[in-house]
Computed example of a mutant assay.
Amino acid sequence: MDSASSVKDENVVWHQHAVDKSLRAELKQQKPAVLWFTGLSGAGKSTIAGALETRLAQLGYHTYLLDGDNVRHGLCSDLGFSEQDRRENIRRIGELAKLMADAGLIVLTAFISPHRVERQMVRDLLLQSEFVEVYVNTSLEVCEQRDPKGLYKKARAGEIANFTGIDSAYEAPLAPEIDLPAGEESIDTLVDLCIAEMAKRKIIFQ
């Protein structure tokens, strides 16, 4: 580390303000949390997270949905899809989700996030009770049948390299807080499962 970087690090401190996470959450009558939806491309992460956000909004809760494609239009528009760039993509999202949780929000994220170590990195940024890993458990076969963006077809044809599930590994969660059988149940049923677990954890109050 050069001297300039060292001086900058020494002079950057976190300011604790009078209005804190607890007060923001109290005003919103909810508990801050990050629901991290992970699964293969085409598993249904964005669809389920979007349906859950709609349900939560109808119930009067304050949320924000971070979607993989949307984030790459702005915050992560400078990143590619190398292993290093994908890791940095998740790091940035984790830091952003942490700030949103500090604002008292219920944050929903929809990212493939294929590696356990990267999901653990985000978990470590938050309080233990704030990170809820949601595994959108859809088989590769079902995801390929859906193939909403035609990405699996391109990957099989060799037009896309390092595609998760084809020539790049996906590490399924070992003990997710919520395991959604997304290839078997309706969206409404999957949302019900999420709502029930959130109520159990007192993220929301029913």
Score class of each variant (00 low, 15 high):
Ser3Gln: 15
Ser5Leu: 13
Ser6Glu: 12
Asp9Val: 09
Glu10Thr: 09
Asn11Gly: 12
Val12Trp: 02
Trp14Asp: 10
Trp14Asn: 00
Gln16Lys: 09
His17Trp: 01
His17Leu: 14
Val19His: 05
Lys21Thr: 14
Lys21Trp: 00
Ser22His: 10
Arg24His: 08
Ala25Met: 10
Glu26Gly: 05
Gln30Ser: 08
Lys31Cys: 09
Lys31Phe: 08
Pro32Gly: 10
Ala33Ser: 13
Ser41Asn: 14
Gly42Pro: 08
Gly42Phe: 07
Ala43Glu: 08
Ile48Lys: 07
Ala51Leu: 07
Glu53Phe: 02
Glu53Val: 14
Leu59Ile: 00
Tyr61His: 13
Thr63Gln: 09
Thr63Trp: 02
Leu66Ala: 11
Leu66Met: 15
Leu66Phe: 07
Asp67Glu: 12
Gly68His: 06
Gly68Arg: 01
Asp69Trp: 07
His73Glu: 11
Leu75Ile: 14
Leu79Thr: 06
Phe81Gln: 04
Phe81Ile: 09
Ser82Ile: 01
Arg91Lys: 13
Arg91Tyr: 03
Arg92Ile: 03
Ile93Cys: 02
Glu95Asp: 12
Ala97Gln: 05
Lys98Gly: 09
Ala103Phe: 08
Ala103Gly: 10
Leu105Ala: 05
Ile106Asn: 01
Thr109Phe: 00
Ala110Asp: 05
Pro114Gln: 04
Arg119Gln: 04
Gln120Leu: 12
Met121Thr: 06
Met121Cys: 09
Val122Leu: 08
Asp124Val: 05
Leu125Asn: 10
Leu127His: 14
Leu127Ser: 12
Ser129Gln: 15
Ser129Ala: 13
Ser129His: 15
Phe131Met: 12
Tyr135Asp: 02
Leu140Arg: 06
Glu141Gly: 00
Arg146Val: 01
Asp147Cys: 12
Lys149Arg: 12
Lys149Thr: 08
Gly150Met: 03
Lys154Asp: 06
Ala155Pro: 10
Arg156Ile: 09
Glu159Lys: 14
Ile160Val: 15
Phe163Lys: 03
Thr164Gly: 02
Thr164Met: 04
Asp167Arg: 13
Asp167Asn: 15
Ser168Glu: 09
Ser168Phe: 02
Tyr170Thr: 10
Ala175Arg: 13
Pro176Tyr: 00
Ile178Pro: 00
Ala182Gly: 15
Gly183Ala: 04
Glu184Ser: 12
Ile187Cys: 07
Thr189Trp: 05
Leu190Asp: 05
Ile195Asn: 04
Ile195Arg: 00
Ile195Leu: 15
Ile195Cys: 11
Arg201Tyr: 06
